[in-house]
Design a binder for these strands. Structure first.
Lengths: 220, 220
DNA sequence: ACCTGAACACCGTTCAAGT
DNA sequence: ACCTGAACACCGTTCAAGT
């Protein structure tokens, strides 16, 4: 039982298992990982440098998964909406890994390539250079924030708030909870933002060309 | 050296130290914690049930810190903007704890109380009940997403992207990086969203009964 | 009540041994 | 090249002992 004729392990198998473990519980140990793979812990080190590398590989895999193919032939509004939804859905499959992903750079070929397409599209749509990156940053913020929301506990607000008689209590009681609440918040934000972008585009095209339109307030 | 006449430890000291450790490195161990506090590991268990409880206490403390006092006497636009900025700033002080915080419910007296005030304000401003909670959810999404952005590495996009000649590359090269980039994205999003909300309010008040414009004094 | 030191189980990692 | 078993350092937790 020393070296098998065909390897029992592969990097892919290790990463697959790590994702399915960390994606549900939010944690994984080399011991569990080995056990699940029907192997001793020390075997893992023939394929991987250590726990940190496993984590790094998981991160890379997730990033690839976010390089969703979006049809960029449509209106920019639809493309942005579709990409945001797709990426959030990809994150939502492994909510516990969102923090991991959010704190690491975009990989070329993964999420970064979707971003390139969108950048082109937004430029062609007439958005100013200065706006394009910020729009992308904004969509990222919404995707990340909207995904983390999915990790929130079912009851976002404690019971005491619900029992109150003020505006928040009334409003909260009338709203959905859990995943559908998170979905609603995400979609609401997406709608609002896209509408706002449409208007920003109208304004700037009316006024001639680019610049940074109305932002009331500049506090120095 | 058994029991000292005045306790060496207190829950507060433990939590303080845990925050300063986890807030910078993103991790803490009971061993380090004890060492930093000039005490043996086992001593910690006289004050705290275990590592998990320390984490829970950290979470609670952070939540309290987010119960920022905002002056709610101004325009709802200014209040929302001020609260969003203040909460993001509070999170930014311990960026590594954002994921922890984002995945736990709001505590009464902490962030929840700020939210109550804002809910009242938005209701009075004329927003529909159905909108109020979603607006709050949206602001949360932006705060959380905008805070996590601060944990991102300095270079959000890999070098290969920067070297390209396409729209993204041009646009990225022209933009700030690091914290100021994150700040810019956050402020851009906040501006856009508040502008959009103003317009939403105008529309609905035009369509609805002609009263309750967005003056701070309006009563329901 | 509150600190210590010894003890235990568990985890990550290394490495010689085996094929 | 790739798996195993033994070994080590480290961490979280428990507990009897001391005041």
């Amino acid at each position: 039982m020393a070296r098998p004729r065909t390897p029992l392990l592969s990097i892919d198998r290790i990463v697959d298992e790590a994702i399915s473990m960390a994606g549900t519980t939010g944690a994984f140990t080399m011991t569990e990982l080995a056990t699940k793979l029907g192997v001793r812990q020390s075997s893992l080190y023939n394929h991987v440098d250590g726990r940190d590398e496993v984590l790094e590989l998981v991160r890379q895999r997730l990033h690839e998964d976010m390089g969703v193919k979006v049809d960029i032939s449509g209106r920019w509004q639809d493309v942005v909406r579709a990409m945001a939804r797709a990426q959030r859905a990809a994150l939502a499959r492994h909510p516990w890994l969102v923090p991991l992903l959010a704190t690491s750079p975009a990989e070329p070929g993964g999420a970064a390539s979707s971003v390139e397409n969108v950048a082109t599209l937004l430029s062609k749509a007439g958005f100013a250079d200065a706006d394009v990156l910020q729009i992308i940053a904004m969509v990222d913020i919404i995707i990340i924030g909207g995904s983390l929301d999915l990790v929130s506990p079912e009851h976002l607000y404690p019971d005491e708030v619900l029992e109150g008689s003020d505006d928040l209590a009334r409003v909260v009681r009338a709203a959905p909870t859990g995943v559908s609440r998170a979905d609603a918040g995400f979609e609401f934000t997406l709608d609002l933002v896209i509408t706002a972008l449409e208007q920003r585009l109208e304004h700037s095209s009316k006024r001639g060309h680019s610049g940074t339109p109305h932002t009331p307030e500049a506090n120095a």
